[in-house]
Design a protein around this nucleic acid. Structure first.
Lengths: 334, 334
DNA sequence: GTGAAAGCGCTAACAG
DNA sequence: CTGTTAGCGCTTTCAC
């Protein structure tokens, strides 16, 4: 592998000049520029990222911190992030935090000593203290789905509260007379917002009761267990709003095992709009977030921040969309 | 952030000595070692990976090249890789190749200039030429699921051929009289091996016909289309072996749409053992690969190779396991 | 056992 | 416009 020195020698210029044409920084004569470029592809020279990184203290790398990449929601987010990052010349370092603070912490120190340019946070355990720490360490970050109370950082999220209301209203519209809710971890702001959206509407109904809500841990198994529990408490439930699609899938499974007919006896609505919600039979009605677009926007914002582009807006809230499917409404003709 | 110099100064030694205790290389007096360590945590010194990387030409980073991280199979592989890598102090750089050679190529040059220590390849487009190139560039790689004809590199895979036979035999055992096969991309060796496994058994049967095989592209949609096509050609099909679970899910969906009763009229078996196969109703019988373990082993092998540990065995083939579920056998009592 | 010093390959003043 | 040179922070001979 040839170095910038070789190029300089071959082109008969100094390394500074080569560096200039490489980074399009400073003025350089058209002629010499051509000569340098010629030397570059004659030698098949490729600038060394690490050396550059050491000099400028940035490695053109973005870290993606998710609870677990094998969760399809985060996998899609990751795909979006990598797609965008690549087009800007950045690489993605993958971090699975399992929502554990100490893991998260160890990732952060690891990332700092690697000179990552910025961090994309999509975990629920990020503390305000961490945000401030990153800010003072001067390392840009964008947070997905979580709004830290203070600390300057971009936040990309979707309208969880509105979406939840949309879901419950839809179930109501479809004739449900008693709607339960399966919520996610208390620590996840998204989960709480969806719960609040549910309550906002449910509380106006005469059937409302706190015992209509159960924890489903944002995963399939939890969704199954929550349904079992809820139906034991309230055998007359005829509508369920699950805080995410994973739990909705679990709920559907459990309902089918219990011999319930969906959507006839019980209607079900999820949240997220991941592919999973379409592979069951019936398919699951859901509140879809534009997951890919959220990941893409977050990445673009992060890169802008890294490259010093000033942006006025700090908060980005995506609209969600109700996608009606077989779990809440029979198609005509069936 | 303090540097190795600061530590040296505070401990009253030279940077060389600090480096020695840091890397446990060369002799160093117990006393001075203690002094150095004291200085280190007094200053909260953290060695800089980039500077180290430039000096030794390795960044303690592993690249993971997959077709698409949002495919659950690769997401699980990715999770395994990251888990293992982290325990050894390595980071994972994520690359989505979409099975496109030029993308793959551009990733490779990008990775080289970043001094990645090794590459984990889980894509079907890796050419022998690439393997040789990596070998001559002296960058270790481990290949998942694909066996390049030549070139030295570790290969981790599972018994696709045997697994396919297992699947077909199981369908036969359950009484199927005409079994179709949905296969994946010709370019994917795994897909071809599974197809061969299918043919090996099917050809012995009097119902065998090449028209019983259809391409499903290893994805859900392809699975749906393949089923539609197959059933048009052969309305009397009563068993389907799908080359992966994604296609099996699609197949199930299409079958249900066509009003077929599973497993009564048609029995269905997939391949891979991803979580998806358990969320449908009925759950899908499948040939499970130990995905996480494969990813974990591949990563461990790669790290050993990186760290110069000699290993005799080059090929690792995992056993697969038939997991019987509702798509091929009714539980007693139903 | 320990230190001095020469890199690793590139950037960025600072002169000219 | 272009070259010189001093780093970036760490590793690694080679002496002592």
């Amino acid at each position: 592998m040839s170095t910038i020195r070789d190029v300089a020698k071959l082109a008969g210029v100094s390394v500074a000049t080569v560096s200039r044409v490489l980074n399009k920084s400073g003025y350089v004569n058209k002629e010499t520029e051509r000569a340098v470029k010629e030397a570059i592809d004659l030698l098949q020279y490729v600038p060394n990222t690490v050396a550059r990184g050491l000099a400028i203290k940035r490695m053109e790398t973005i870290a993606l911190v998710v609870p677990d990449i094998s969760n399809p929601f985060f996998a899609e987010l990751g795909r979006a992030a990598e797609d965008i990052a690549r087009t800007y010349g950045y690489s993605i370092i993958l971090c699975n935090s399992d929502n554990e603070m100490d893991k998260e912490q160890s990732y952060i120190t690891m990332l700092k000593k690697r000179y990552v340019d910025g961090i994309l946070f999509a975990t629920s355990t990020l503390r305000t203290a961490d945000v401030n720490m990153m800010n003072s360490a001067n390392i840009p970050l964008v947070v997905l789905d979580r709004a830290p109370r203070e600390g300057t950082c971009y936040v990309v999220r979707s309208k969880n509260y509105d979406g939840a209301r949309l879901a419950v209203q839809h179930l109501l519209d479809e004739g449900c007379k008693k709607i339960a809710h399966i919520y996610g971890p208390q620590a996840a702001p998204t989960a709480m917002e969806r719960l609040q959206g549910y309550e906002a509407i449910a509380k106006e109904q005469n059937w409302y009761s706190p015992s209509l809500m159960a924890d489903g841990g944002f995963n399939i198994k939890g969704g199954m267990e929550a349904v079992a529990q809820l139906l034991e408490r309230h055998p007359d439930i005829d509508g369920i709003f699950a805080g995410n699609d994973l739990m909705a899938v679990g709920a559907l499974k459990q309902l089918q095992r219990m011999g319930k007919s969906i959507p006839d006896q019980i209607k079900l609505c999820g949240f997220d709009g991941i592919e999973l919600s379409q592979i069951t039979e019936p398919e699951i009605t859901t509140i879809a977030q534009p997951i890919y677009n959220m990941g893409a926007l977050a990445t673009r914002l992060l890169i802008k921040k890294i490259e010093g582009v000033q942006i006025e807006e700090q908060n980005y809230e995506f609209d969600v969309e109700l996608i009606v499917r077989g779990s809440t409404r029979r198609e005509r003709g069936s």
